[in-house]
Simulated assay, not measured.
Amino acid sequence: MVKNVSEKITPERALELQLEPCKFCKPDINHLKPSTENKARGKSITVQCKGITKKGTRCKHNTSIANGYCFQHQPG
């Protein structure tokens, strides 16, 4: 989709420049991406906290912590 490209770059360089793969060719570059071990699983980067408030309702904070709880509702 890009016209007038002046030079070819490697997938590694594209990741350094924070470029996304083409929506048509979709090259497999998952092996090059950094690990996401500490991020919440799912389609979005953040998820709604699993914590319950004093009123008994679900917490409305979003979190990117892998266990699904915001900073206020960390189990422990």
Rank of each mutant, 00 (worst) to 15 (best):
M1C: 11
V2G: 04
V2C: 05
V2S: 05
V2Y: 02
K3L: 15
K3D: 11
N4H: 13
V5F: 02
V5M: 06
V5A: 10
V5Q: 03
K8Q: 11
K8T: 13
P11S: 08
E12K: 13
R13Q: 14
L15N: 09
L17K: 11
Q18G: 14
Q18S: 14
L19M: 15
E20Y: 09
P21F: 02
K23F: 13
K26Y: 12
P27N: 03
P27C: 02
D28C: 01
D28P: 08
L32S: 08
L32T: 10
K33H: 06
K33Q: 13
P34Q: 07
S35A: 12
T36H: 06
T36A: 09
E37P: 00
N38L: 04
R41I: 10
K43V: 11
K43I: 11
S44T: 11
T46C: 00
T46A: 01
T46I: 00
V47H: 00
C49H: 08
K50E: 07
I52N: 04
T53H: 06
T53Y: 10
T53V: 10
K54Y: 09
K54L: 14
K55L: 08
G56S: 03
T57V: 02
C59A: 06
H61C: 13
N62T: 03
T63P: 06
T63R: 01
S64T: 00
S64K: 00
I65H: 01
G68S: 01
G68W: 00
Y69T: 05
C70Q: 05
Q72E: 15
H73P: 08
H73N: 07
Q74C: 10
P75H: 15
